[in-house]
């Protein structure tokens, strides 16, 4: 971090990507899989915030809720309704998994917007694991629930027979591209927003003439990023629900 401040003072050489650096919190050395890094720290903070919001906030089990309990109940109701509406009644038993994904992404996105914070969801490694988990789970559920008839998802029976093999290829490609788009959409949005914020912040220290515009830009982009943080969590979750619906009811 000391390097970046030095180079920033030197002129226009700022590093908008430095904020995404993964580094060990204690001591020197390589980053092993078990090393306690800033990833560990910010994921732990996310867990802590989730516990504060959803466990401590609902401690009183009040029939007339206070603010924190209201937020927890609203999130619960929002995702529950989404799962029920998109996947149907039989999708409700997957609600805890979907809610876990949603609350982790939402909390990580918002925590990442704190100044000096590390955004765990800006890393493709994280979002790829989330998306692959959804993809594998949905595929397994699809075959377990429907057996071989799950392949009917790729065989569009409403299309003319001649077109069906071509459609099957297209459907197959789109199915396997799902985890890619699912993960890159989230990481890309979050990363791009944070990088742009850093670029505007870099311009803010260039000169008095540019600084006001740059600071206004930072404010505007920050507001946009707050929106994006919530929307991307929502989009990831609703796509998970849509994929789950395909697995539960593969007929078009």
């Amino acid at each position: 971090m000391a390097e970046t401040t030095q180079s920033a003072e030197g002129g226009l050489s700022f590093h908008p990507l430095d904020q995404f650096e993964v580094y060990r919190l204690f001591g020197e050395g390589p980053v092993h899989w078990y090393t306690i890094t800033n990833v560990t720290l910010w994921m732990a903070i996310a867990v802590l915030c989730i516990v504060l919001l959803l466990v401590m906030g609902t401690r009183k089990r009040a029939v007339v809720p206070n603010r924190t309990q209201s937020i927890a109940e609203t999130l619960y109701g929002f995702i529950y309704t989404m799962v029920e509406d998109v996947t149907g009644k039989d999708g409700v038993k997957y609600f805890p998994y979907i809610f876990t994904l949603f609350i982790f992404i939402l909390m990580s996105n918002f925590l990442g917007l704190l100044p000096m914070a590390f955004t765990t969801t800006s890393h493709i490694a994280v979002t790829a694991v989330l998306a692959l988990a959804v993809f594998i789970a949905v595929t397994v559920i699809g075959f377990v629930k429907n057996g071989v008839s799950f392949l009917g998802l790729f065989w569009v029976s409403s299309a003319p027979l001649a077109l069906r093999p071509i459609l099957a290829v297209i459907e197959g490609i789109s199915y396997f591209v799902r985890p890619v788009s699912h993960s890159i959409r989230l990481a890309g949005n979050v990363m791009a927003g944070h990088a742009v914020l850093k670029v505007f912040a870099g311009f803010a220290q260039v000169g008095l003439l540019i600084a006001p515009f740059a600071i206004f830009g930072v404010i505007a982009i920050y507001a946009l990023e707050v929106l994006v943080a919530a929307i991307q969590a929502y989009v990831f979750t609703i796509l998970t629900c849509v994929y789950l619906k395909d697995a539960l009811h593969p007929s078009h």
């Binding site: 994921m43 516990v51 959803l54 466990v55 876990t100 490694a125």
Partner: peptide, 18 residues
């Protein structure tokens, strides 16, 4: 590996709490 390991730990913890 580091990120994936801690992500899995985090998700399991969140899932259990929830």
């Amino acid at each position: 590996p580091n990120q994936i390991f801690w992500l899995v730990v985090t998700l399991v913890v969140i899932y259990l709490i929830l």
